[in-house]
Computed example of a mutant assay.
Amino acid sequence: MTPDGTTPLPPSTEYATTHLATALRLAAADVPVLPLREGKVPFGNCPTCAHSACGGRPNMKHPGPCQCLSVCHGWAAATTDPDVLTSAPWAAAWRQAAALAYYPGGAGLTVLDLDDAAAVAWAREHLPPTRIVDTTRGQHWLYLGPMRSANAVRPGVDIKSHMAYARWRGPGHGTMAPLPDSVRALAGREEATAPRGVASSAGARAAWDRSVATGCRHTERYVRTGLERGIALVHEHPESGAGSQAFQVARFFAKQHTDCPGPCGLDALAEDVVSAAVAVGVPEPYARRAVTNGLTLTAPSAA
């Protein structure tokens, strides 16, 4: 029986897609996995968890009360439990899955995502050889050992490990090497800029509603539609660019609310955009800087 009391779906059923079969093999090797929907991005949160109302899964950076059985919260939904992978709440996701992802940090790995030929050439010159997985535009270099994730550590290079997911593109070729200090140093550069967070943290905050936006001139439907579209745009950049997209979404919010008497609850909207960026692999400090800079670029009189 699965945790929700339903009967697991065996691999022989119609739900056992190629992605699920691969997921079960990876899970048996202690690699946490999750399905990706169309666009190669994580499935959106279920209604109970929409807009981070549940507080987030317990294994996310900001612990919450969520015990959701669905494929919620991006990378944090990844699991090695075959009962969960074949459970009824996950069945619809497998039927719609367009790709498979895994959680490198949970498997004790770091993925160096090299987005183009120039990035690959740089890695060959400066980094120790390791297992390589070819991608559509470049390569993934896999190292033994986890670390924090960081985007855009140099042109065309992202690091995916803790609090991030990587698309499964096959086992690759070559022998996996231990994580070198030279890769850890790349993330250190990004950490050198102190983050300037928005007012409230993702762990304890008020969701956007009229109680935090008493001076907003827009309708609730208008604001929520803009938020949903903005989050969708961020989710469309799982490989790279999610941080930049989060900046653009925040800048849009700031411009739309410039003429409002305020307050407009932009801090609550910002937290949802930060959460969306983190869900597709952007390190939280980086996501917060991007969103805060977008809001302050053309900041309205009332946030």
Rank of each mutant, 00 (worst) to 15 (best):
A121S: 15
A270Q: 14
T48P: 08
P128G: 06
G44Q: 04
H51A: 13
V71E: 04
P47H: 03
D83S: 13
D267M: 12
V198K: 08
P32Y: 00
K40P: 00
G145I: 09
F253D: 02
A290Y: 06
P65I: 13
S87K: 03
C260Y: 03
Y15R: 07
E14S: 09
A118G: 02
T18F: 01
P146R: 13
A101S: 10
V157W: 02
A152T: 14
K160C: 10
A150I: 10
W90C: 11
P3L: 15
A303T: 09
G106A: 03
R169M: 13
E239S: 05
M163V: 03
V153A: 06
Q245N: 02
R57C: 06
N293E: 15
W168H: 07
A91V: 07
L109E: 12
A270M: 10
S201W: 03
T17W: 01
E228S: 11
V291S: 08
Y15D: 14
R289F: 11
M176S: 09
A23D: 03
A29H: 01
R224W: 08
V111H: 05
P171Q: 14
R169F: 11
A97T: 08
Y222N: 11
G56I: 10
V133D: 05
T18W: 00
P261G: 09
L20A: 01
G170K: 09
L26C: 00
V71F: 08
T219I: 13
L127H: 02
T6E: 15
R37T: 10
